[in-house]
Design a binder for these strands. Structure first.
Length: 863
DNA sequence: CATATCACG
DNA sequence: ACGTACGTGATATGC
């Protein structure tokens, strides 16, 4: 299918303009919008390979909407002149690129886009609408997609019918009706007062459309009904205003819109005038025989749909099987499975079946008997579901989400449509289940050579893939919670909060919301006249963060009260109420460990985040008492790596002093204090040690003098001296860190000990800040990421050994450098031994990896 | 929906 | 002259 790309010129130029800092040529022409637009356009051309392309613009003249309803878009802020002047400039560039500019008096860009995509559909073309304006979503259709620019310049989301359903629960038509009901403040479309997104959707689900609501207005009860009846005309008008026209007369033909060569002479002249050196260079570098991705052949060609049973019958043992399971990822009760779809690529057989709670286990059983090598996207929910139903014999062979995460860990999400676009250069209709499985197969096959080329095949196969099951096991086991304990802690906190609040109000002489940083700042630094200890950022912008308030604690007792208030409310809302709300029907909490979120390779944890349960604060630590073993006779065993990141720094840099210290079990912070401050080991005071500790952390983070000084509350000069002294005494560390930055600058990526890659695109920027950030990332990521590699290997080993030995103890938590096992009493000693052995021997390093171990009946007791 | 804050490693 | 330590997630507020 040929592809037509149409861009909302105004919308993208706006985004581009505000995403950039100011750019002016020597002649005083403002160019940053045009510059960023061209950047985005290049990316669009590269990503989507259009056959036809056009850019639509609004015109200054009033549109037919203004004529019918003069208040339309009234009250909008004036567009800055610097931006307005860039519209004709942009159009000039587009013309030089031989890209058609569409505009028509009396219509908005949206109407032109609506019209062109309707024409495209008639002509049998696929359309991609690129815009930053959500209103375009009403144009989504069978072969019409909207690519929405969310924020910045590179964050795009592709919407098809399914994605709209998933995101809003609405069809494109309903989207228009919703806007008719709720109106739109930014366009000054009235809608019905009191109807927002929620009520709007309820009304739509009940009556189908604005017309339906109007026809049944009498039936609607209460205040809502009154509002509806009083604003019937407004609703109809609003819908009309919100509807994008799809039949504007536009005299263009497809051949004119064909995407082809630019007018090089004209473009070069323009780029010179605009001082776009980067684009000039790119133009010169471009060769006509650039590699183009071959579009996939028809995905479904040769695929045969068979019954689920037949597919299984003809599936040989231990063969690759693409699988997609509809299961919910809600961990509060037993997951509900709705359907399973399979594709056997060997025979090109596809099958799907709906699943009921009754036949799920039988159907999965007959599938798993074939011991298939399962391939899918985001397999963990399936693994979790199987484990929850007591099925533990399955092999996860390839998860395209996890694979893609290794290839590009900076991404925020990994969805099929985008990946398919990337690997096959084709859009994918998300509703076609059969096609989705073909796409999975296609992506899977293309990821293998990509992983191989990047040297990450072993990391993928031997670490990340087995980890899915390990994690699913932890989630499935979960942790039992004592709700009574949490509730009584909550009541206690409530009294504290009430008391502190009253005291703060008393001293402030006024009541306000202490949880509002804005109000708090105003009360403290204006009403009460407390001098603000930092320079104010902009106008009336006070930070009330703890490190700022702590400077005032001594002189102003209120501030202490505020800090105590904040501590208590944090505990109450996040750790008492938050946790209580996540207890499952089995009395346990089953968190989600996310494997594809953290760019360094770490896991993250959500709903709840059990990786940030309080421990440093004595009061907060008590929360851990509510986490209990699931059987009274069991016991938790916790083991944490001692100083794993500093040990890695020693190993990776080969610094002789650090290596020696870790080999002999020296106190590393004390040693650092002694060397940096030039005092004998035995004279190091606790203060010296704690400062040295901050220096050691700083080394791992790629510290700056400023950062360290902020952290320690010392002058920048002193901080810088510490840093210089440290690097002088540990030249190898300095060399190692410099080398990482060099590698990053060279390759735009750095690696961990197991070959995990993190791209650092910030190195491509020429802004000082980005370069500084890039350097810190290059220094930190290999350390943090290698530590993540190591504990992941250890987790797999621990989990595998527990299962191989058919032990009943279970891994339950990972907290970055720490593992917690819930052990049955008869296995306690074995658990302690195997936990330590597998953690300390996860990898071979030039320093020992020592663990500290603790055990107890509640999480609190692991100290 | 972004921001500020604070919990953890 | 500027803005600055790495990686996460949850909550409340306010536009």
């Amino acid at each position: 299918m040929k592809r037509f790309v149409i861009i909302d010129g105004n919308s993208l130029l706006f985004r581009a303009f505000f995403a950039m800092r100011e750019m002016v040529t020597r002649d005083g022409i403002y160019t940053q919008g045009v510059f960023a637009f061209i950047n985005m356009l290049n990316k669009i051309l590269e990503d989507y390979h259009p056959d036809y392309i056009a850019v639509a613009f609004d015109m200054k003249a009033p549109t037919f909407r203004h004529t019918a309803y003069p208040e339309y878009k009234a009250g909008r802020l004036k567009t800055p002149m610097e931006l307005l002047s860039q519209i004709p400039l942009m159009q000039e560039v587009l013309q030089a690129m031989n890209i058609t500019v569409l505009e028509k008096e009396g219509f908005e860009a949206d109407d032109l886009i609506g019209t062109m995509t309707a024409k495209a559909a008639d002509a049998g073309l696929e359309s991609l609408i690129i815009t930053g304006d959500k209103d375009a979503l009403q144009l989504v259709g069978e072969n019409t997609y909207v690519v929405l620019n969310r924020k910045g310049m590179t964050d795009f989301d592709l919407y098809d019918l399914e994605k709209m359903q998933e995101r809003y629960g609405l069809t494109p038509q309903e989207f228009i009706d919703l806007k008719g009901l709720m109106g739109d403040k930014s366009d000054n479309i009235p809608g019905i007062p009191g109807v927002g997104e929620k009520k709007g959707i309820t009304l739509l689900k009940e009556y189908g459309s604005v017309e339906g609501v109007v026809a049944h207005a009498d039936e609607i009860k209460g205040k809502l009904g009154e509002n509806v009846r009083a604003n019937l005309e407004e609703a109809e008008l609003s819908k009309w205003l919100a509807t994008i026209k799809r039949d504007v007369e536009l005299p263009v033909s497809w051949p004119e819109l064909a995407y082809g060569e630019p007018d090089y002479d004209r473009l070069i002249a323009l780029y010179k005038k605009l001082e776009f050196k980067k684009f000039l260079q790119n133009l010169e570098r471009q060769t006509p025989d650039e590699v183009t991705v071959e579009p996939e052949k028809d995905l479904l060609e040769g695929v045969k749909e068979v019954s689920y049973e037949d597919l299984l019958d003809s599936l040989k043992n231990n063969r690759t099987l693409i699988i997609e399971m509809d299961t919910d990822d809600n961990h509060k009760q037993l997951p509900e499975v709705k359907g399973v779809r399979l594709y056997n690529p060997e025979q090109m057989h596809y099958a799907e079946c709906t699943v009921t709670p009754l036949d799920f286990e039988i159907r999965m059983g007959s599938l798993l008997d074939k011991e298939p090598e399962l391939v899918g996207l985001g397999l963990k929910p399936m693994a979790y579901t199987l484990l929850q139903y007591g099925m533990d014999r399955f092999t996860l062979h390839h998860d395209v989400e996890v694979a893609e995460y290794l290839l590009d860990p900076n991404r925020s999400k990994y969805n099929l449509t985008n990946m398919f676009l990337h690997y096959a250069n084709e859009t994918l209709d998300g509703e076609d289940a059969q096609k989705r499985l073909m796409a999975l197969d296609c992506i899977y096959r293309k990821q293998l050579p990509a992983l191989e080329e990047k040297g990450m095949l072993s990391l993928f196969r031997d670490c990340e893939m087995p980890l899915i099951r390990t994690i699913a096991g932890m989630e499935s086991q979960g942790m039992k919670i004592n709700p009574e304990m949490l509730k009584s802690a909550g009541e206690e906190l409530d009294t504290q909060i009430a008391k502190l609040e009253a005291e703060v109000f008393e001293e402030a002489g006024t009541t306000f919301n202490i949880n509002s940083p804005k109000q708090l700042g105003e009360v403290l630094f204006e009403t009460m006249g407390i001098p603000y200890p930092k320079k104010t950022k902009g106008k009336n912008k006070y930070s009330t963060a703890a490190d700022v308030l702590e400077k005032l604690e001594e002189d102003y007792p209120v501030v202490s009260k505020v800090l105590m208030f904040r501590k208590a409310s944090k505990l109450k809302s996040t750790y008492v109420d938050g946790l209580l709300g996540l207890i499952g029907s089995d009395g346990r909490i089953h968190p989600h460990f996310n494997q594809t979120v953290a760019a360094t390779g770490r896991l993250s944890c959500t709903e709840p985040n059990l990786q940030n349960i309080p421990i440093r604060d004595e009061n907060g630590r008590n929360i851990r008492k509510a986490f209990m073993v699931s059987e009274p006779e069991n016991v938790f065993v916790g083991s944490d790596y001692s100083q794993i990141e500093l040990r890695l720094m020693a190993a990776l840099s080969g610094d002789p002093v650090l290596l020696e210290a870790f080999r002999t079990g020296e106190d590393i912070h004390r040693l650092t204090a002694s060397r940096v401050f030039d005092i004998p080991m035995e004279d190091v005071t606790p203060l010296d040690r704690s400062r040295a500790k901050a220096v050691n952390f700083g080394v791992i983070y790629g510290m700056s003098g400023f950062g360290l000084s902020e952290n320690l509350g010392i002058t920048r000069k002193d901080a810088q001296r510490y840093i210089d002294d440290y690097f002088e005494k540990h030249q190898a560390v300095k060399d190692y860190l410099d080398r990482q930055v060099e590698i990053g600058k060279e390759n735009f990526e750095v690696k961990t000990i197991m070959g995990r890659i993190r791209q650092i695109p910030e190195f491509k920027s020429r802004r000082y800040m980005d370069q500084q950030l890039a350097a810190r990332l290059a220094m930190n990521s290999p350390i943090q990421g290698s530590a993540a590699d190591i504990i992941k290997v250890a987790m797999n080993k621990v989990d595998a050994e527990l299962r191989e030995r058919e032990m009943k103890s279970k891994l339950v938590l990972q907290i970055h450098d720490e593992l917690i096992v819930e052990a049955v009493p008869e296995e306690l000693e074995q658990v302690e031994e195997l936990l330590r052995r597998n953690m300390e021997n996860a990898v071979e390093l030039s320093v020992p990896l020592d663990c500290d171990m603790h055990s107890g009946k509640t999480w609190f007791d692991l100290k």
